[in-house]
């Protein structure tokens, strides 16, 4: 008799449990909204760094007035950069403590050797006061497209005429630079 009394309860509970998975409710979810995913990460990194003491411009008593570096750069042609890079800032800072003026030319070339862009930074000679030159270059729109086609960077440091340097001349020309890359991923 007792069993019959319990019967409705456990039958009810049993049915509830069994139908749990089938009767469960869920808030309205929209998985299509992943299509609206838009990430805008911004990365900063060092770009180019050098620190050249004055005596390196002199070899066996003779001045070398031009330093050139040609580097192959394939990072900007990477699909991720081509598709998702929206803006680039290049920040240059040159601290010259050598008593000579300099010009730093940075030239960008594409794969066929055509020059696409150039950046020129004039650095005055050091006369005892703080001599820090900063320059910001912004790549957006068409200029950004040229950056994305760049495969070679030529960097030329030219020393202007002035009082001759010797192997004991003091000072350095130090360049530090950073890149800020703004991505839009969607």
């Amino acid at each position: 008799m007792k069993r019959l009394l319990y019967l409705p309860y456990y039958r009810y509970l049993g049915i509830c449990l069994l139908s749990l998975f089938f009767a469960a409710c869920s808030s309205d979810l929209d998985f299509n909204q992943t299509k609206n995913l838009r990430l805008e990460p911004t990365y900063v990194a060092n770009l180019v760094y050098f620190d050249i003491p004055a005596n390196e411009f002199v070899t066996n008593g003779i001045e070398s007035s031009q330093f050139i570096d040609r580097s192959t750069v394939d990072v900007f042609n990477n699909t991720f950069f081509v598709n998702d890079l929206a803006k680039v800032d290049l920040d240059f800072e040159i601290n010259n403590t050598i008593a000579r003026a300099y010009t730093l030319d940075v030239k960008l070339f594409n794969a066929s050797g055509t020059q696409l862009d150039s950046i020129s930074i004039a650095v005055p000679a050091y006369y005892g006061a703080s001599n820090i030159i900063t320059q910001k270059e912004v790549f957006q729109g068409t200029r950004l497209s040229t950056l994305k086609s760049t495969t070679r960077i030529e960097m030329a440091l030219r020393m202007a005429s002035g009082t001759a340097l010797t192997e004991t001349s003091s000072g350095t020309i130090k360049m530090r630079s950073g890149i800020t890359a703004y991505f839009v991923i969607q």
């Binding site: 990194a45 060092n46 770009l47 180019v48 760094y49 050098f50 050249i52 070398s64 330093f67 050139i68 570096d69 040609r70 580097s71 192959t72 960097m155 440091l157 530090r176 630079s177 950073g178």
Partner: peptide, 11 residues
Amino acid sequence: KGLVPHFNNEN
């Protein structure tokens, strides 16, 4: 530190 150019030394 960044790319360190080796001036007058290709590649």
